[in-house]
Amino acid sequence: MTEVRCEIDEGVAVVTLAAPQRRNALTVEMAAELIAAFDEIDARDDVGAAVVRGSGGSFCAGAHLGVLDGAAADPLDDDAQRHIDALYGSFLRVGCSRVATVAAVRGPAVGAGLNLALATDLRIVARDARLIPGFLRIGVHPGGGHYTLLARAAGRDAAAAVGLFGREIDGARAAELGLAWQALPDAEVEAAARELAAPLGADPALARRMTASFRREAGPPGTPWDVGLEVERGPQMWSFRRRATARSA
């Protein structure tokens, strides 16, 4: 891999977008590398969580202009369709990973880059990070499930303000709205994300079951309480038996 790095330590994978010369803007090739990184993570039983970060002080500046220009030139062209699908597929791959995911967001997260951050289970952001929808600014309809991702994280009003009205927000405001768990000084963001991931990395088998249950129940769409009870029953009984077995060993 040349523009996506994956380093695994103590059950936590750190996935780095490594194209700082363009503020980690996503190309088709980079999207394929991101998918491959999560294929590797999911194939390993010793990983319970993943942190997604950007290099060079930026999270992700969105889709590379070459991808956007190709789509604009002929939106119905087969290659243009495949290239857009590749970008969207990378968000979906992160969101469907078997492990819990945390985005460590520093600097700008623009358009597709904001989608990538929102595809994770949890976000830690720098207070001065810039969350920029960007679509309205360039006269393009949002894509990648942008409204769904915003609404599931922070509700309808926040989704309208950011996605529909195109409001840029900083990390501090993102945390106030519920788009991020915590806003911190820039230098503390990645360590905090790694610290959050560490307990899940310490018990990957349990972490993967918890992650699956969390997503089924939390949605979208959300799960009714009685259905949630049944979703949790099997994994919880597995964990009881494992605990008893460990005690008797």
Score class of each variant (00 low, 15 high):
11 G>D: 06
227 V>F: 10
173 R>V: 10
197 A>C: 13
206 L>P: 01
108 P>V: 08
207 A>R: 04
227 V>R: 15
118 L>I: 07
158 A>W: 01
83 H>G: 00
135 F>V: 06
184 L>N: 02
98 R>N: 11
198 A>S: 13
81 Q>N: 09
213 S>G: 11
104 A>W: 06
103 A>I: 10
89 G>K: 01
82 R>P: 03
214 F>P: 02
119 A>Q: 07
192 A>M: 11
129 A>V: 09
235 P>A: 11
98 R>G: 12
99 V>F: 03
211 T>I: 02
198 A>L: 09
31 A>C: 12
186 D>W: 07
148 T>W: 07
103 A>Q: 06
240 F>S: 13
126 A>L: 05
174 A>W: 02
91 F>T: 01
40 E>D: 15
172 A>H: 08
140 V>Q: 15
79 D>Y: 11
189 V>W: 12
130 R>H: 09
111 G>I: 05
128 D>R: 10
182 Q>P: 05
216 R>A: 15
198 A>I: 00
66 G>N: 13
23 R>E: 10
81 Q>E: 12
97 S>P: 02
82 R>M: 10
127 R>C: 10
18 A>N: 15
215 R>M: 10
34 L>S: 03
207 A>D: 05
147 Y>N: 03
159 A>N: 08
233 R>C: 11
212 A>V: 07
148 T>K: 05
116 L>I: 00
80 A>S: 15
121 D>F: 09
144 G>V: 11
107 G>F: 05
105 V>D: 03
88 Y>G: 03
115 N>P: 00
184 L>D: 01
12 V>P: 02
187 A>G: 09
212 A>Y: 07
175 A>K: 05
88 Y>M: 12
229 L>G: 15
189 V>P: 12
199 P>W: 11
79 D>I: 12
